[in-house]
Simulated assay, not measured.
Amino acid sequence: KIQYLTTIESLEKQKDGKYISVAGIIRKAKRVTTKKGDMMCFLEIEDFLGVVEVIVFPKAFYDNINYLVPDIPVVVRGKLDKSDDNNKIIADKVIGLEDYTPEFCIIVKPEQEDNAFFSKITETLQENAGPCPVYMYFMSSKKMIKGNREFWIDGSETIVNNLKNLLGKNSIKQR
């Protein structure tokens, strides 16, 4: 499940049930008790372009309780729910923005799967080593692997542009 940070405004164009990530500030946090006695929460998240309701069911509530208060910048990951007139996100993760580390996915086309090409990719990744995990998606086998720590990158514009030049314009995605 690859998800990329998206704006709240762009949720209109997304499909129901799509797994998404949104960054914003919690405007409201209303905690409620379920019939079973568990806690859950309804959040209102705002970015520069809009507002969206986020539903945090008990499991996600207890896993993310420290971030479920107003005025905290967060990244919310979950499924988009368009079952009524308003877009909602059913959260499975709420991360403080300061704890969010972007991840990158490199899309490798079948014709790029050879040792010489992998040597160039490896060299490029190691030139800009850093804390951001790198995944490789192989189009031929539809398989994704997470790169070893030595192949993680700094997430800079430089590395992203170098990888685009090496692999093609749409070959690297941030998630």
Results as ranks from 00 to 15, higher is better:
residue 47 D to E: 14
residue 44 E to C: 02
residue 66 N to K: 13
residue 69 V to K: 15
residue 56 V to E: 09
residue 72 I to R: 14
residue 80 L to N: 01
residue 72 I to D: 04
residue 84 D to M: 06
residue 75 V to E: 10
residue 81 D to C: 03
residue 57 F to P: 05
residue 54 V to I: 10
residue 93 K to H: 07
residue 78 G to T: 05
residue 71 D to Y: 13
residue 67 Y to C: 10
residue 65 I to H: 08
residue 79 K to E: 06
residue 72 I to V: 15
residue 87 N to D: 08
residue 59 K to M: 13
residue 52 V to H: 14
residue 68 L to P: 11
residue 42 F to V: 13
residue 57 F to L: 12
residue 62 Y to F: 15
residue 47 D to K: 00
residue 80 L to Q: 04
residue 48 F to E: 13
residue 61 F to L: 06
residue 54 V to H: 01
residue 69 V to T: 14
residue 58 P to H: 14
residue 73 P to H: 10
residue 63 D to V: 09
residue 66 N to W: 07
residue 50 G to P: 06
residue 70 P to V: 12
residue 71 D to W: 12
residue 53 E to K: 12
residue 85 D to Y: 03
residue 55 I to E: 07
residue 78 G to V: 10
residue 73 P to A: 07
residue 65 I to G: 01
residue 45 I to P: 01
residue 84 D to R: 00
residue 50 G to S: 08
residue 45 I to D: 04
residue 75 V to C: 08
residue 45 I to T: 06
residue 69 V to I: 11
residue 59 K to V: 13
residue 74 V to Y: 00
residue 89 I to L: 04
residue 88 K to V: 01
residue 84 D to N: 06
residue 89 I to D: 00
residue 45 I to L: 15
residue 86 N to P: 00
residue 46 E to P: 10
residue 49 L to W: 04
residue 49 L to T: 12
residue 48 F to N: 13
residue 61 F to R: 06
residue 80 L to S: 03
residue 64 N to I: 09
residue 51 V to K: 13
residue 63 D to E: 15
residue 76 V to D: 09
residue 58 P to G: 11
residue 93 K to R: 12
residue 42 F to Y: 07
residue 92 D to F: 14
residue 63 D to Q: 13
residue 55 I to D: 08
residue 63 D to C: 12
residue 77 R to C: 01
residue 65 I to M: 12
residue 50 G to W: 01
residue 67 Y to N: 15
residue 48 F to P: 03
residue 93 K to E: 07
residue 58 P to E: 07
residue 41 C to M: 14
residue 54 V to P: 03
residue 50 G to A: 05
residue 59 K to Y: 04
residue 50 G to T: 02
residue 73 P to M: 12
residue 65 I to F: 11
residue 69 V to D: 06
residue 50 G to F: 05
residue 59 K to I: 00
residue 79 K to Y: 05
residue 70 P to C: 10
